[in-house]
Design a protein around this nucleic acid. Structure first.
Lengths: 146, 146
DNA sequence: CTCCATTCGTTGGTTATACCAATATTGGTG
DNA sequence: CACCAATATTGGTATAACCAACGAATGGAG
């Protein structure tokens, strides 16, 4: 029995189904990240560093949609684990430059695998064609407003 | 700019898009409920009462997937607003019987309208055919595992 | 150069959701 | 009766997401 299964009017409410599916995906992702000693913010930040190179914390926050204060905490954790390096920016002494370390790159690869595995687990009941359909429909929804 | 828009590998990750869509839907729902002096739990509980008639708090919790302790709090709030009535069960004095009041029925109608409006807002970019497709795909996902 | 607004990192909160544990009361079963 | 299960309730925890305020530093307008 899942949240709201006993309420008939929700079974045909797309927004509710989206929330249900998101909850499941979120649980699986959180569990997978936790098993790799990480969490969602870490994955986002590592991926952003990988794709855009060394960045200030504010840049990371804007790119990932994470509040500056939460970036501080996540970077603290990852710096302590040597996944990233934090050093002051010579050209702008307000900023820190965050750099991905070798260990950070390796960790990101592991997390990419975790995410990939969860994609497969969640999408398992769908055929390739259906997955493409779903991707297209969701992209349309997200591009529009969210 | 939305959460994770600056991370390319997420734009083609269905689970991420689902989470994004769910966040948007969740925000809209929370805002809509708040504008009606309610929140998600209230809607779930009122809907369950409407569909199944008077129930104990434990029944409500099981049907809605809400923890018993959270049911207590939500029922407290709704009883204070005269949306439901809480009285001890004569046949089983462990239980309370929760009953929907007239005002509760009216409130539920308002919340149903709120939810309906949000469905339309979220699904706006999709044609009728696409909405049916999405509903089908999501149902498949949710039925399967979550 | 001076003043002012802005940016940045950081600390220290708040809120809402979703849990979990413990308790007293009652019900049902042997 | 003795025992276990279910119920309502209190209280607490963890987490994500967000917000406010601060000092230090920067940049631009005059």
């Amino acid at each position: 029995m899942h949240r709201g299964d006993g309420v008939a009017r929700l079974r045909n409410a797309p927004t509710w189904l989206i929330k249900m599916a998101a909850e499941r995906a979120g649980r699986l992702l959180a569990d997978g990240f936790a098993a790799a000693d990480s969490r969602g913010y870490h994955y986002l930040l590592l991926a952003a560093l990988d794709e855009h190179g060394p960045s200030s914390q504010a840049e990371l926050g804007r790119r990932c949609g994470i509040d500056r204060s939460d970036v501080v905490a996540a970077i603290n954790e990852m710096a302590a684990a040597n996944l990233v390096e934090r050093r002051p920016d010579e050209n702008d002494r307000r900023r820190n430059v965050i750099t991905l370390t070798r260990a950070g790159s390796r960790h990101l690869k592991r997390l990419d695998d975790v995410v990939g595995g969860i994609q497969d687990a969640v999408l398992e009941p769908l055929s390739d064609r259906e997955r493409q359909q779903l991707l297209r429909l969701l992209a349309k929804l997200v591009d529009h407003g969210g």
